[in-house]
Amino acid sequence: MQASAISSFTDFDDRRITQPNIDQHWHKLSTAQRFAFYTLAKLGYQLLFVRQSRNEKTAVIRQDNQLVTIDSEGDINFSPKLVLRENR
């Protein structure tokens, strides 16, 4: 029984090891998010990733140490309550 449990873990795709490139994240953005991000990209912000749940897609972008999120409607949040794994 333990051997089958271990083999199922080896098949698990760990997102921390294989991260999608920026083009894969870009294609996940809604049109409103793309327009909002384009405005911020002119100011030096970079797209980190898109977090997707059943009801919402949230783009996470950064400039230096400042994180910003953009919701599916294109609304920008300059003070998100978000902690990245690398900052824990």
Rank of each mutant, 00 (worst) to 15 (best):
P20D: 04
K57R: 14
Q19C: 04
S53W: 11
G74W: 03
R88N: 13
I61M: 12
S4W: 14
F9C: 15
I6G: 03
N77S: 06
N87F: 06
R15D: 07
I76A: 07
N55W: 09
D11Y: 07
D64F: 05
Q46S: 15
P20T: 06
V60E: 04
N65W: 03
R54A: 11
S4Q: 15
N77R: 02
R54M: 07
F35R: 09
S4H: 15
N77E: 07
R34S: 15
A3H: 00
F78E: 02
K81Y: 04
K81L: 07
E86K: 11
I17Y: 10
Q66M: 01
I70P: 00
S30V: 09
Q46I: 09
L67G: 03
T39Q: 00
Q66D: 00
P20V: 07
S79R: 01
Y38D: 13
A3W: 00
A41P: 00
T18N: 14
L48T: 02
L84H: 05
Q46T: 14
M1R: 13
A5Q: 10
A3R: 01
L47F: 02
A59E: 08
A5I: 08
V68K: 03
E73F: 00
G44W: 03
G74C: 04
I61E: 10
L29C: 11
N55Y: 09
N55A: 11
L29A: 10
D13C: 11
D64V: 01
K42L: 04
D75M: 05
K42F: 01
D14R: 09
D11A: 12
N87K: 11
K28M: 12
Q2L: 07
Y38Q: 03
H25K: 02
R88T: 11
L48Q: 08
H25C: 08
L29D: 09
T31E: 15
N55T: 12
R54L: 11
I70K: 01
D13E: 15
K28A: 13
R51F: 15
K42A: 09
S53L: 08
I17F: 12
K57D: 07
D13K: 14
N21P: 13
V68L: 00
L82I: 05
S4F: 15
F12E: 13
M1C: 10
A3M: 00
Q19W: 07
S4C: 15
P80M: 14
F35M: 05
S72H: 10
R16E: 11
A5G: 08
D64R: 06
E56T: 05
A3Q: 04
Q33L: 02
N87T: 13
Q24H: 09
D14L: 09
R34M: 15
S30Q: 13
L82D: 02
S53Y: 10
A5H: 09
N55S: 13
S7K: 06
S72I: 05
